[in-house]
């Protein structure tokens, strides 16, 4: 075989291999053992230790185009909050579509919980959708100044009632006087809106982030500076969450057994008690391994081809 050909493989061959690999990968069972990133462990521990009487604020800034990563994030977050009966308020900034896709996720998890015979979340009672704030900077600044004014004009449907009521008249937000009354704010984003949120709100409320792999590197400085208490980045982050939702941290189902996830700084943090844990990210994560391996193989192949060709050329000259 002529190894030097390996450096000029037609790009279409690579495309077909990727297409086939990513399609087949979806049907392979995948529960890959994992050691979650420290930032993801922090986020999970934080979520599992939230007080139940305070609401969580979710800012959802992604649309269908980054569904592969961010939808897994929102799903994991909602499953954790719903299993712990923590009320939440959700809104979107920048893109009008963002609110709609977030609502779809909540609806779908509710359906799934209904099927499993679990408590469902009702709009206006357990969660509130505030709508879209077109200007992320303005929304953050206003929330910082006075959350009652920033959200005062927003109304919500209440499940089982006709008409709409102001959001602060609902059980979710009744006791909220300032943004600090929320136990946590999670920004789920596919863009730089996290910078805006951190700059304006991170000193007022405990903040965490879930973002696409592209945004994730820029979260690290915030995390190190303590502005973000935890984050989950990209598909890996989503899988980290699902993995911990199934296995907990420092938790072993039978005494004496080695826990699957360990972290020295926490005590025992249990897995999520009810509902699904492994879902979208688990489905995609195995395939991601295949795709990345493919890429690394392609790089190795190209280099091997190049070396062989170089050697040959040298031999010819001599």
């Amino acid at each position: 075989m002529n190894w030097s050909k390996l450096q000029n493989v037609d790009r279409r061959v690579l495309y077909v291999i990727l297409l086939v690999a990513t399609s087949l990968g979806l049907f392979l069972p995948s529960r890959i053992p994992n050691d979650p990133e420290p930032a993801a462990k922090d986020l999970y521990a934080l979520l599992m230790q939230l007080p139940e009487d305070k609401p969580v604020i979710i800012q959802s800034d992604w649309t269908n185009s980054t569904r592969g990563e961010t939808m897994g994030h929102l799903e994991a977050l909602c499953r954790i909050l719903m299993s712990r009966r923590i009320k939440f308020v959700i809104y979107a900034t920048a893109d009008a579509q963002a609110g709609q896709v977030a609502l779809n996720v909540i609806r779908q998890i509710n359906e799934e919980r209904k099927k499993a015979g679990l408590v469902t979340y009702r709009e206006g009672v357990d969660y509130i959708y505030l709508g879209v704030f077109p200007n992320a900077e303005g929304a953050g600044q206003n929330m910082r100044n006075d959350i009652r004014k920033a959200w005062g004009t927003r109304q919500t449907k209440v499940d089982g009632q006709a008409g709409r009521v102001p959001v602060f008249d609902t059980a979710v937000l009744r006791n909220m006087r300032s943004v600090s009354d929320a136990s946590l704010m999670v920004v789920i984003t596919a863009s730089a809106t996290i910078d805006v949120a951190v700059q304006r709100l991170s000193d007022k409320v405990t903040m965490a982030c879930m973002s696409t792999g592209v945004v994730a590197p820029s979260l690290l400085p915030f995390y190190q500076a303590g502005q973000l208490k935890g984050f989950a980045g990209g598909l890996r982050g989503a899988y980290d969450m699902e993995y911990m939702m199934a296995h907990g941290i420092n938790y072993s189902p039978t005494p004496g057994q080695e826990p699957k996830v360990t972290a020295e700084k926490f005590g025992e943090i249990p897995p999520v008690p009810e509902g699904k844990s492994f879902e979208r990210a688990a489905r995609y994560f195995g395939t991601l391994h295949i795709a990345l391996t493919l890429l690394i193989l392609a790089v190795v192949m190209g280099n091997v081809g190049m070396f062989v060709a170089k050697k040959k050329a040298k031999g010819g000259n001599n």
Binding site: V9, R11, Y15, L18, N64, A291, A298, V299, G302, N303
Partner: peptide, 24 residues
């Protein structure tokens, strides 16, 4: 929206061929 997502995902293919050519 679906075409947006489709066009966006084409990048994955291009990343593969670009890395294959450039990472030498």
């Amino acid at each position: 929206q679906q075409m947006d997502a489709a066009m966006f995902s084409l990048i994955a293919f291009y990343i593969l061929s670009a890395a294959y050519r450039a990472f030498r």
